[in-house]
Design a protein around this nucleic acid. Structure first.
Length: 348
DNA sequence: TGTCCACGTCT
DNA sequence: AAGACGTGGAC
């Protein structure tokens, strides 16, 4: 196939979006933006990006940040391990590389939270190294360009596509080329529905378009059904504030805070709720009152939330729990989006 | 309402 | 190799 880079780069220089991490593509800026943009849309990530850099303008500041504050800066973005790995990596960078990211693909790849895609993005965009940066956009563009039926969820298919990406990469502009492919996927070679082939600089070269199959590509495996889970949440209030507990350090929503939550558990009726409170050694007060249910969908689990509200007398918080005022809840404790309905009920 | 985006990284 | 890991917005 004819080399796509000339037409692609020409299009990119005329049509690319002005984004903050492009205005100053320092290694730290590109790193942070790429981590934030994993599984997250540009529009959703931008306000987080600006605030994060205001609070933590460089890698040493990130390394030194209080982990609880770090969670707070990420609250609402999801995949919280991303920000924990970001800090782990920042500390390694400070200890091993004097606070600057290494200009080396393999060294980047070895850092926590940096996989093939992110290592390639930083190496090519910030350091000008001739390596690939293949994300979902690029896989879609190449599935169509080559009219390739392979499942892009298959690692072997990804390797083949990556080799093709490198076949077209100009040695003097690897970063622009990688970004141009992603930008084309984001603005023109759109997922689902109808790609905007009329605006595509590669339309004449595109085998998928020629075959009338662009909209059917890429192919991917059928996703597994989500596990359905019943979850009971008790919003317990005392004169000291709301009762919060911290989640375990591993697994789903690790280390984040929540109201009293019983996963895989359906407490039926106020009697069962009161028993659960007494089980924790709490002095129960008024009769627990049921609230409207709620649903939260994770990528792999569906929570059916059963909410209760109860007023308790002033007393010490059980082990692993705290009483938190609304202000403390806003400023210090990170509650994941799964508890959106609870936050509303608690006046947050 | 349900599906897709959303391969990204770690285990 | 395959499952774990969040969220919100478009359609």
């Amino acid at each position: 196939m004819e080399n796509i880079a000339p037409a692609l780069l020409d299009w990119f220089y005329k049509n690319r979006r002005i984004l903050p991490f492009r205005t100053d593509p320092s290694p730290y800026h590109v790193w942070l933006s790429e981590i934030m943009l994993q599984q997250t849309r540009v529009a959703a990530a931008l306000p987080y990006y600006e605030r994060f850099l205001r609070e933590l303008p460089d890698i040493p500041a990130l390394a030194a940040c209080d982990p609880e504050k770090l969670h707070k800066l990420w609250e609402g973005l999801g995949y919280y391990s991303r920000v924990r790995n970001l800090q782990k990596a920042a500390r390694i960078v400070c200890e091993q590389y004097g606070g600057d990211l290494p200009a080396d693909y393999d060294a980047l790849l070895a850092l926590p939270g940096i996989g093939e895609y992110t290592a390639g993005a930083i190496a090519s965009i910030s350091f000008g190294l001739a390596v690939p940066a293949v994300d979902g956009n690029v896989l879609r563009v190449f599935a169509r360009l080559y009219n390739d039926d392979g499942f892009i969820t298959d690692p072997a298919v990804k390797r083949l596509f990556t080799a093709r990406v490198m076949d077209h990469q100009p040695p003097d502009a690897p970063g622009d080329y990688n970004q141009a492919l992603m930008e084309l996927g984001a603005l023109v070679c759109l997922p689902g529905g109808e790609p905007l082939c009329g605006q595509c600089p590669l339309a004449d070269l595109c085998a998928g378009r020629k075959a009338g199959r662009a909209r059917d590509l890429p192919r991917k495996a059928v996703p597994k059904a989500r596990k359905q889970t019943e979850v009971t949440v008790i919003l317990a209030e005392s004169p000291e504030g709301w009762l919060l507990q911290q989640r375990p350090p591993k697994g789903l929503l690790a280390g984040l805070w929540q109201p009293l939550t019983f996963e895989d558990t359906l407490l039926e009726g106020p009697g069962a709720v009161r028993d659960a409170l007494e089980e924790l050694g709490l002095d129960t007060g008024d009769q627990p009152r049921p609230l409207p249910g709620a649903k939260h969908i994770f990528s792999h689990i569906e929570w059916h939330l059963h909410l209760w509200r109860v007023q308790l007398p002033a007393q010490p918080a059980p082990a692993g729990c705290v009483w938190a005022s609304c202000q403390a809840l806003r400023e210090e404790y990170t509650l994941p989006g799964a508890f959106k309905a609870c936050k509303k009920e608690m006046g947050l």
